[in-house]
């Protein structure tokens, strides 16, 4: 169980301040979804939480200790990170790609421990790719490859899981499958953070939503508290209706507001 915190975190991308004094506490056992318009700083925030972006100010704290002071191997075991839209450079077999998730545990892909082998098989199973183990990862469709890469992150079995747009390339069936997996991970005690653009899916699966805009947190809380029609208008520049249906919020984006966004 690990709590991940950003304390007064600022990050610069070149001359631009991408994140401006972010304070955020991410609790174990919860699926937190980061939403916000393009260029809001979502990916920078997730990379910072993963320890991959150098803070200009402030700090990222994992269970009370600064991430910057951690050994890379310890950090890699604690935090699994899935970048947005990643590729695979060589036609490695799917099982080999997923097995790379065991590197933080000191396991080489061709010499996995029993636990490692189980983790790889379970990860493949959970994203519905159990029959794909020996297929070259480069010969898959975009959505299949995205699920392979997610399985790689799952195979680390880290207590913190940070995923950047895990469902963007997926069909509706697999969007639900993947979000279920993330939710299960959170229920099992992991700290799970995902970036998403589909606000209805975010509202349905997230325990907490971070609404990010221009490098600042506009709102942080449960979906119904964060996703209001007024905020969607002000921040996303859309006329939207937020409906409550079968216990969940449904965001219907109706039209862009002219000269906004």
């Amino acid at each position: 169980m690990m709590r991940l915190e950003a304390r007064s975190l600022s990050v610069d991308l070149g001359a631009r301040r991408a994140l401006d004094r972010i304070d955020l506490s991410l609790e174990p056992g919860r699926l937190t979804v980061i939403v916000g318009p393009n260029g809001a700083g979502k990916t920078t925030l997730l990379r910072s939480l993963a320890g991959l972006a150098e803070p200009a100010q402030g700090d990222v704290i994992l269970n009370g200790a600064s991430l910057a002071g951690m050994r890379a191997s310890a950090r890699a075991r604690a935090i699994a990170y899935l970048p947005q839209g990643g590729g695979v450079a060589w036609p490695l077999p799917v099982a080999g790609v997923v097995a790379l998730g065991r590197l933080p545990h000191g396991e080489k892909p061709d010499r996995l421990s029993d636990a490692g082998r189980e983790a790889v098989a379970a990860a493949l199973q959970s994203v519905g790719l159990q029959g794909f183990a020996q297929r070259p990862a480069t010969a898959l469709s975009g959505g299949e490859r995205a699920r392979v890469l997610l399985a790689r992150a799952l195979a680390t079995q880290a207590p913190v899981l940070l995923v950047d747009e895990p469902v963007a390339a997926l069909d509706p069936h697999h969007q639900l499958v993947v979000l279920d997996v993330l939710k299960q991970r959170a229920r099992a005690g992991a700290t799970v953070v995902a970036i998403m653009h589909d606000l209805s899916l975010a509202a349905r699966f997230a325990d907490m939503i971070v609404l990010l805009n221009q490098g600042k947190i506009e709102a942080f809380g449960p979906p119904e508290a964060v996703l209001t029609e007024a905020r969607l208008g002000a921040i996303f520049g859309i006329r939207a209706r937020v409906l409550r249906q079968a216990g969940s919020l449904v965001v219907v984006a109706e039209s862009p507001i002219p000269d906004a966004g």
């Binding site: 991959l52 950090r75 699994a80 970048p83 450079a89 080489k108």
Partner: peptide, 19 residues
């Protein structure tokens, strides 16, 4: 061994503990 992880890109390799 670091080259293996690099097959998935620099960010992923870094997140897997590779310098």
């Amino acid at each position: 061994s670091g080259l293996r992880a690099l097959a998935l890109g620099e960010d992923t390799a870094q997140s897997l503990g590779i310098d």
